[in-house]
Amino acid sequence: MSFGDPNNPYNQQPNQPPQGGQPGYGYPQQPGIPPQQGQPGYGYPQQGIPQQPGQPGYGYPQQQPGTLQANNGYINVPGLGTVQVATMGRRLGARLIDGVIICVVYAILSGIGLAGALGLAETAEECGSTLDPGYNACIEDASAGFLVTMLGIFALFALITLLYEWLMISFLGATVGKMALGLRVVKENTGRNPGLGGGFIRYIIPIVGALLCYIGTILVYLSPFFDNSGKLQGWHDRAAGTLVVKK
């Protein structure tokens, strides 16, 4: 009669590890048998799987808003994604269309002013001769009326120009000329329309430049050529924080 191991009186079999050398809960990894590729187990970290190149994620910096893409004329704008910066040819073409519209409005107002001047001239002829007692007073009234008429026409023209450029850019992001050529003015940091503040700043800077015999205005409209960032921002765009892009 034989006796078993005194430490194992019931002759129990020792725990065996799973087949194939796979570690599990309570079973240590067998020496020299690595886990299968990509199969995590207890005590083994998940194998890292890198993301596809160019896909933003952990460890991959996202493209910052306002960043040009390889200077190819495209830019990343928040809210719009990747859009194309408007070329100077299109911008000058849009400005030309707007100029024609403004000239038509000016011609209409000038015609109204001329008709008023002719009416005042007829009134001056009715003042009589220089020997009449009320002649000087009549001529002064006619001259004052002509001056008021011309100043009123000029003020109305300036107001129409202001409202045309300011309000359309503020709320629509484009004038008629820009709409015709598929352009839009947006805020660089949001991609939205400039709003009243941005639209006014963008409008008033060229007007201030007109005080220098319009030389300043010409320089403002040509200033995108001087922008070495590739965004083609004019001085008025930089001050208003805007970009001109294609729709």
Results as ranks from 00 to 15, higher is better:
residue 105 V to E: 11
residue 84 Q to L: 02
residue 86 A to S: 11
residue 82 T to C: 00
residue 96 L to Q: 00
residue 98 D to F: 08
residue 60 Y to W: 06
residue 122 E to S: 14
residue 105 V to D: 01
residue 117 A to G: 09
residue 96 L to P: 09
residue 88 M to D: 06
residue 41 G to W: 04
residue 99 G to R: 00
residue 48 G to M: 10
residue 86 A to C: 02
residue 87 T to L: 12
residue 87 T to M: 07
residue 61 P to L: 06
residue 50 P to H: 05
residue 54 G to D: 08
residue 46 Q to F: 07
residue 71 N to F: 10
residue 53 P to S: 13
residue 60 Y to A: 03
residue 105 V to S: 09
residue 84 Q to G: 01
residue 102 I to F: 13
residue 83 V to K: 10
residue 87 T to G: 14
residue 67 T to V: 07
residue 85 V to A: 09
residue 114 L to G: 03
residue 68 L to G: 02
residue 42 Y to P: 07
residue 80 L to I: 05
residue 123 T to N: 09
residue 116 G to I: 11
residue 59 G to Y: 15
residue 58 Y to V: 15
residue 67 T to E: 04
residue 42 Y to N: 09
residue 112 I to W: 05
residue 76 N to G: 00
residue 84 Q to Y: 02
residue 65 P to C: 03
residue 81 G to I: 13
residue 42 Y to S: 12
residue 91 R to T: 11
residue 111 G to M: 15
residue 69 Q to G: 08
residue 43 G to F: 15
residue 119 G to R: 11
residue 100 V to H: 06
residue 54 G to K: 14
residue 63 Q to I: 08
residue 122 E to A: 15
residue 65 P to S: 02
residue 65 P to M: 10
residue 97 I to H: 01
residue 94 A to C: 01
residue 102 I to Y: 04
residue 103 C to K: 07
residue 87 T to N: 10
residue 44 Y to Q: 08
residue 66 G to I: 06
residue 61 P to R: 14
residue 71 N to E: 04
residue 95 R to I: 11
residue 115 A to N: 13
residue 60 Y to F: 10
residue 89 G to A: 06
residue 121 A to F: 12
residue 43 G to T: 09
residue 111 G to R: 13
residue 63 Q to P: 05
residue 83 V to F: 01
residue 90 R to I: 01
residue 94 A to K: 00
residue 43 G to V: 03
residue 54 G to V: 14
residue 95 R to Q: 09
residue 98 D to M: 09
residue 54 G to T: 12
residue 98 D to C: 10
residue 68 L to R: 04
residue 91 R to Q: 03
residue 71 N to G: 08
residue 104 V to L: 14
residue 119 G to Y: 07
residue 95 R to E: 05
residue 111 G to Q: 12
residue 57 G to N: 08
residue 88 M to A: 05
residue 81 G to K: 15
residue 67 T to G: 02
residue 74 Y to C: 00
residue 81 G to D: 12
residue 57 G to S: 10
residue 99 G to S: 04
residue 117 A to M: 10
residue 93 G to F: 03
residue 76 N to C: 03
residue 74 Y to P: 00
residue 112 I to D: 00
residue 83 V to G: 08
residue 93 G to P: 03
residue 67 T to A: 06
residue 110 S to F: 13
residue 56 P to K: 05
residue 115 A to G: 13
residue 73 G to H: 06
residue 72 N to A: 02
residue 65 P to Y: 10
residue 53 P to L: 07
residue 45 P to R: 15
residue 55 Q to K: 14
residue 80 L to H: 10
residue 72 N to S: 08
residue 121 A to Q: 14
residue 64 Q to I: 07
residue 94 A to N: 02
residue 66 G to C: 12
residue 63 Q to F: 02
residue 70 A to Y: 10
residue 111 G to T: 09
residue 107 A to Y: 12
residue 41 G to K: 03
residue 72 N to H: 01
residue 80 L to V: 03
residue 69 Q to N: 13
residue 107 A to E: 14
residue 104 V to Q: 00
residue 71 N to W: 01
residue 52 Q to Y: 11
residue 66 G to H: 02
residue 79 G to Q: 03
residue 57 G to Y: 11
